[in-house]
Design a protein around this nucleic acid. Structure first.
Length: 206
DNA sequence: ACATTAAGTGATT
DNA sequence: AATCACTTAATGT
């Protein structure tokens, strides 16, 4: 059992998690949740990170947020609590390990364990704040800062200033065209904020 | 050496 | 900011 959880959850709840959680693993790029899929379990991320995407009608993807270790998916809660299908797609960002908790079980925990309720409320709060930020950025069409934000996020995820991403990939995740990304990146390079290589970007002052 | 893919750039809408 | 068209550079076979 994850050590960090000792500080979050009460012992009794830890036992329950151990009892009901199904340990699952996935490799980078594996799709964890597809849009329209019925959700009957809640994932608790133990290690690695997950990317959560939203689709539009034309099949364009847009990156909504990252899910990190010791976190769970806020979307999943809302889905399975009301027995609805997923509105988002989740993909493993690297090697991941997670626990699957059956919905009915975790539903009971909400009433029984205050720390669980806290945990759920917290992930909801965090995700909501982050979504608001993303909406702001998209609404005000500030692609520059959205790009900078994206780069910082990816850097944080990999724990490195050297990012292995192509302009094309970035364009896809931000739902724009490669040409636009290339130009914005060029501008950032001229401002000495980063260095560009083929399929690699080195962050300097970002 | 040749084909393929990533990135840079001017012009147009 | 998006698209097109074209060029240049890097990589794979």
């Amino acid at each position: 059992m994850n050590i960090k959880w000792n500080h979050i959850f009460e012992p009794e709840l830890l036992n329950q998690i151990e009892k009901h959680g199904i340990l699952t693993k996935a490799k980078e790029g594996e799709v964890i949740v597809e849009i329209g899929q019925w959700i009957k379990q809640i994932p608790l991320l133990i290690s690695g990170s997950i990317k959560v995407y939203r689709h539009d009608n034309e099949g364009n993807e847009i990156l909504l947020y990252f899910l990190n270790e010791n976190e769970t998916c806020a979307m999943t809660f809302t889905c399975c609590m009301q027995n609805q299908v997923s509105e988002v797609k989740a993909v493993a960002s690297d090697e991941i390990e997670f626990l699957l908790i059956p919905t009915d079980v975790m539903d009971k925990w909400l009433c029984t364990y205050p720390t669980w309720k806290n945990f759920v409320m917290n992930t909801m709060k965090n995700r909501f704040n982050e979504l608001l930020r993303t909406i702001d950025q998209i609404a005000f069409q500030n692609l520059d800062s959205r790009l900078e934000n994206y780069l910082k996020e990816v850097s944080k995820q990999s724990g490195s200033k050297l990012l292995n991403v192509s302009h094309e990939k970035i364009a896809q995740e931000l739902a724009t065209s490669r040409v636009v990304i290339s130009r914005l990146l060029k501008k950032l390079e001229n401002d000495k904020k980063l260095l560009l290589y083929r399929t690699q970007i080195r962050l300097m002052t970002l």
